[in-house]
Design a protein around this nucleic acid. Structure first.
Length: 481
DNA sequence: CGACGGGACGC
DNA sequence: CGACGGGACGC
């Protein structure tokens, strides 16, 4: 029964995963279960009864594991008659227990998502990435009104709550598995009339408390100097040429269109061909051939998109078309990493990376940006500079660094910590003398401790140690569905 | 009209 | 001593 996972059925987590049913006094838990079980994982059914007489009040709550399951059940079951002679039932998404409101939750509040996207996305990119969940009423990107620059945020309005819920769930999956850096971290948009920023079940604790002003919050913590990211790049030379075909074949069991595959694979720069394979009668063979102008992009596309669920529930298969190229060679790997680094830069740093994108489509013969060498003064000999990994790489080890008397600049820290290898990210806690350093390889982090703990860099003494795991009540979404 | 129970983590 | 990053729409 529901003793399986009390946490997930206890609160309204994930949001909008609980139904409020208006039935009849004669409708029992068993009858409800029978009619709702096929929509997903039911975690709890509760028929509200009078405390004293134990008679049903004709209302019930059904908690599903996922919002999409609850929404689909609502869409399918609202207005249905469960038992001959009883009135048709009403089905709504339940108000969260903390809200205190008993107003019906309207579809209006469940069909629009607010989503964080790369700044390079256009409205069409946004639509293309979300249309797999259903017809989109509209998609808009929030822009700076004077410059027209994207703020990296958008709204997508679907027709049905279940479509919006699926979009959100799949965005979470993307962020979690780092399958792609397409749109992710989507939430149900707050209604526009309401005052923004305040009460959001997603980011505030169930018991909203006053949060003191944070004087440092205006700085853009995500924007980081990435100059050192390229310190090791460009080593492959021009040993691959653009006239070699760099072809992939994409196979899908579900029906897909050439346009869908185009949209997906065009997110990786350098695509110069995308065609559905058809038989002599023009019927799709369920295979699309994609060619990139360079090895790195094809390797990258294969790595990132093989097994990718698109549309959700359907795993794409991406294989190389045999053209004799050895992609396991160091050159192939390096080419891929270079594409990855360039894409991260282009994607997250916005239009200024357009030139970089252009050069990469031409086989990226352009040299990496010149490294602005940070001046590092210390009494130890550090290893040579190494490349940083993309910010969304999974960290295997995290260091906690204490600075005395004051923090070193981010670029100096990146310069220092990248030298041990597999550095992902350095983060300084605002207005504190501490920071975190993420590594993809445990050994590299430990090497950094061994070499840097207790040392003085640019006159700043460091304590370098393993970080404690992040605090539990972080604002990160819990994947309980 | 039609809105919130029962049971109780695991060091 | 020294602890955890980003979010909102011209009506």
């Amino acid at each position: 029964m529901d003793e399986s996972n009390r946490n997930s059925s206890y609160l309204d987590e994930p949001p909008n995963s609980r139904l409020f049913l208006v039935t009849s006094k004669s409708i029992t838990e068993e009858i409800i279960r029978e009619h709702f079980t096929d929509f997903g994982e039911i975690q709890d059914i509760w028929v509200v009864k009078d405390k004293h007489t134990k008679e049903s009040k004709g209302v019930a709550f059904v908690k599903f594991a996922r919002s999409s399951q609850a929404c689909t059940a609502m869409e399918e079951m609202h207005g249905r008659t469960l038992v001959e002679g009883t009135k048709p039932i009403k089905v709504f998404i339940a108000q969260s227990r903390s809200s205190g409101s008993h107003r019906d939750v309207e579809d209006e509040e469940l069909t629009r998502i607010f989503v964080m996207i790369p700044k390079t996305f256009t409205e069409d990119n946004l639509k293309d990435n979300f249309k797999v969940y259903g017809d989109i009423e509209y998609a808009i990107i929030i822009r700076n009104k004077t410059t027209g620059d994207s703020k990296g945020l958008g709204y997508v309005r679907f027709h049905k709550p279940s479509q919006a819920a699926k979009a959100i769930e799949n965005c979470d999956k993307n962020g979690e598995l780092q399958v792609m850096f397409v749109a992710y971290r989507a939430i149900i948009a707050e209604p526009r009339t309401k005052n923004a920023s305040a009460d959001n079940d997603y980011f505030s604790t169930p018991r909203p408390e006053h949060v003191p002003n944070d004087p440092g919050s205006s700085s853009f913590l995500f924007a980081h100097e990435s100059s050192s990211s390229y310190s090791g790049g460009g080593g492959g030379g021009d040993s691959w040429s653009s006239d070699i075909t760099h072809c992939l074949v994409v196979s899908s069991r579900a029906t897909i269109t050439q346009e869908q595959i185009y949209s997906l694979f065009d997110l990786i720069p350098g695509m110069d061909y995308c065609e559905m394979q058809r038989d002599q009668y023009g019927f799709s063979k369920g295979q699309v051939v994609v060619r990139y102008s360079n090895l790195g992009s094809s390797v990258y596309a294969r790595e990132k998109l093989h097994g990718f669920e698109y549309p959700p529930g359907n795993r794409l298969s991406v294989a190389y078309v045999d053209d004799g190229e050895d992609r396991t060679s160091p050159v192939g790997k390096m080419a891929m990493q270079l594409v990855a680094a360039q894409m991260m830069s282009v994607v997250w740093n916005g239009p200024s990376g357009a030139q970089l994108l252009k050069s990469s489509t031409q086989g990226f013969s352009a040299p990496p940006p010149p490294l602005q060498k940070a001046r590092v003064q210390t009494d130890v000999t550090l290893p040579s500079l190494k490349k940083l990994l993309p910010p969304d790489t999974v960290a295997k080890e995290r260091l906690f660094v204490i600075f005395n008397p004051s923090p070193l600049p981010i670029d100096v820290l990146e310069d220092v910590f990248c030298r041990f290898g597999s550095l992902i990210d350095v983060y300084l806690v605002p207005s504190r003398n501490v920071g975190y350093v993420k590594f993809a390889e445990r050994k590299h982090a430990h090497d950094a401790i061994t070499m840097l703990h207790g040392r003085v860099i640019n006159g700043v003494k460091l304590k370098v140690m393993l970080a404690d795991p992040p605090r539990e009540e972080s604002h990160k979404r819990q994947r309980t569905y």
